[in-house]
Design a binder for these strands. Structure first.
Lengths: 124, 124
DNA sequence: CCGTATCCTCCAGGATACTG
DNA sequence: CAGTATCCTGGAGGATACGG
């Protein structure tokens, strides 16, 4: 069941790496409240590079989480939106986000006390 | 709210990178059904290196998700177990895992069709 | 048994420049 | 506007050896 070769485990692991990667979750969350054009996304996530936005969107599209719609006008127009599958992912994601918010104080406290303990030891 | 500098966002992002990293989730899941010794974990996750197991456990401990108990005997004995906080994380994690299992077919189908479409284009 | 210390490799991801 | 192409660097993470 925990065997990394197990196909269901690989799926889960792949999903976690996707939503755990540097940008995917941010993009999904942004698309959560509606479709966006490419440069719209860039502006709403200013720290992402053009390259990484493209790559992130391609991966999400490949996984069936995002739909890409090209309107061949001049200038060209490309819209991205969550698929049904993409929207369905929002609920479990939301569970994690809620957990993180509920326990962020506890986490920071744990980190602070861990770091303080380290300092104390190395002072000795 | 999506500003990466926002402290609550940094907490969420940090959490996601932790559970999305290569080993943390696997370790947490393994500790899910009880305390383990160091080399016990190594055997149950054969592909992890000693270094990465140590680092992963240290991070989880720092975040307050795992407890480390040293028994100074010969040979030394070190036990790891989930904290209360660690256990509470299992529920939202489980939501994600369930989602992944429920939709793994859809994901694989999306990937296959995406890849097939790519092949078709480059054949032209 | 349970680590730490070192070295080394590989690739995620940023910066920049160019195209349709 | 919406990308692709190329180059480059930092750091994640494996292998190995040593220490308490």
């Amino acid at each position: 069941m925990k065997d990394p070769a197990n196909p269901v485990c690989r799926t889960i692991s792949a999903l976690l790496q996707r939503i755990g990667d540097k940008w995917s979750l941010l993009v999904v969350q942004t698309l959560g409240d509606g479709s966006r054009r490419f440069n719209q996304l860039r502006r709403e996530i200013p720290s992402i590079s053009q390259r990484m936005l493209t790559l992130t969107l391609r991966n999400l599209e490949r996984d069936g989480l995002v739909n890409r719609t090209v309107t061949p006008s001049i200038p060209p127009r490309v819209d991205y939106e969550l698929t049904e599958l993409g929207h369905s992912l929002q609920k479990p994601i939301c569970g994690l986000v809620t957990w993180a918010m509920d326990h962020s104080d506890a986490i920071h406290a744990a980190q602070a006390s861990y770091d303080a303990e380290l300092d104390r030891r190395e002072a000795a």
